[in-house]
């Protein structure tokens, strides 16, 4: 991950970085598969606040919730790429994959 930083009055400002923030690749990998490309949904765990909205409004039951409230991809084959979780996530922490033929671009 390449980082361009600049020192300023307010401290170090990250100019260019793969978004979101400080996320490492390990964080992206979901329970459904070890390869993020095969999973229909990506969850940025660093940004997730465990509010449970994505799980509650997933129309097919693709997403599940762990004991601590964290969402995970329970049934990857059930995803219909409806964008509901993407639109309703207040923390911009979940998105879908274009690789799987989804229309996630919002």
């Amino acid at each position: 991950m390449t980082k361009k930083t600049e020192k300023s009055r307010d401290g170090v400002i990250i100019l260019e970085e793969d978004f979101p923030g400080k996320m490492e690749v390990e964080d992206v990998i979901v329970d459904a598969s070890d390869d993020p490309k095969k999973s229909p949904v990506y969850i940025f765990y660093n940004w997730c606040k465990k509010c449970g909205i994505c799980v509650a409004f997933c129309p097919t039951g693709c997403l599940g919730r762990r004991a601590d409230g964290t969402p995970y991809v329970k049934n990857p084959e059930k995803c219909i790429h409806c964008e509901t979780c993407d639109r309703l996530c207040p923390d911009f922490a979940i998105t879908g994959s274009k690789d799987k033929g989804g229309i996630f671009n919002g």
Partner: peptide, 25 residues
């Protein structure tokens, strides 16, 4: 692996601290 970006991410300020200040939910 390439990390997918939402359109929303292109409009956010990269030097701000995320996750944002609002409560969960």
């Amino acid at each position: 692996a390439s990390i997918p970006q939402k359109v929303v991410h292109q409009y956010l300020r990269h030097n701000k601290k995320f996750p944002h200040v609002w409560c969960a939910g």
